[in-house]
């Protein structure tokens, strides 16, 4: 069982690698398409700016590769946002697994932007997301605090499997087919974060 962490110009790759080491998971940090495609699981991390990051991914043809993956894929933070259709950040077309628009938080008197710190998420962990019309029957059985750092968010949609609220409710977690995506940083979210990583590595 080998997990590939996609290497690109993102900030938190080392932290994700260390988190996998703490869980004693075998991993490789790579931008080699064959190595990524041949791994059992793929983590698409990300801290950075959407436009420059997409440009970098396109130059390396990693955008097409990510779209073609059939093994379990975990997108983290910017990685989650880039799995959407489009981001307001730099008016950037993204990879398009989730047909969603990434929007910018509008600060107000009570809320500073970025949304930074620990916030509560109500979520479920399932192997595959149920059909949209089943959403009402999904048990959102887990509640934990996770560490967030972001200025852009994905609204609630039919793929949302974890809810958080800051200024407005937004998607903290989404699931579609073999793709799991989280807006928070599981690698920096203490025991709760480890629970998510373990779920991805063993059960997703």
């Amino acid at each position: 069982m080998k997990t590939a962490i996609i290497r690109y110009n993102a900030g938190n790759i080392q932290s994700v690698a260390f988190a996998l080491e703490r869980l004693q998971a075998e991993y490789v940090v790579t931008d080699n398409p064959e190595e990524i495609a041949g791994s059992d699981r793929v983590i698409f991390p990300g801290v950075g700016q959407a436009h420059t990051t997409m440009q970098h991914l396109r130059e390396k043809k990693l955008d097409l590769l990510i779209r073609s993956l059939r093994q379990p894929v975990l997108g983290i933070c910017l990685g989650m946002q880039l799995l959407c259709r489009h981001s307001e950040e730099g008016n950037t077309p993204c990879i398009g697994i989730f047909n969603e628009e990434v929007k910018k938080f509008q600060a107000d008197a009570q809320h500073k932007v970025p949304h930074m710190g620990w916030n509560r998420v109500v979520y479920n962990l399932r192997n595959s997301h149920p059909e949209n019309d089943d959403l009402n029957r999904v048990q959102f059985a887990h509640t934990d605090d996770f560490y967030f750092v972001h200025s852009y968010y994905i609204p609630i949609n039919s793929h949302t499997s974890g809810f958080c609220e800051y200024i407005k409710p937004f998607s903290a977690m989404m699931q579609k087919d073999n793709f799991l995506a989280v807006q928070f940083h599981p690698e920096k979210s203490g025991k709760a974060g480890e629970k998510i990583l373990k779920f991805f590595l063993t059960s997703f």
């Binding site: 260390f18 940083h185 690698e187 920096k188 979210s189 203490g190 025991k191 480890e194």
Partner: peptide, 8 residues
């Protein structure tokens, strides 16, 4: 520290 600690 980063290797061991799971918070920011």
């Amino acid at each position: 520290v980063a290797h061991v600690v799971n918070i920011p």
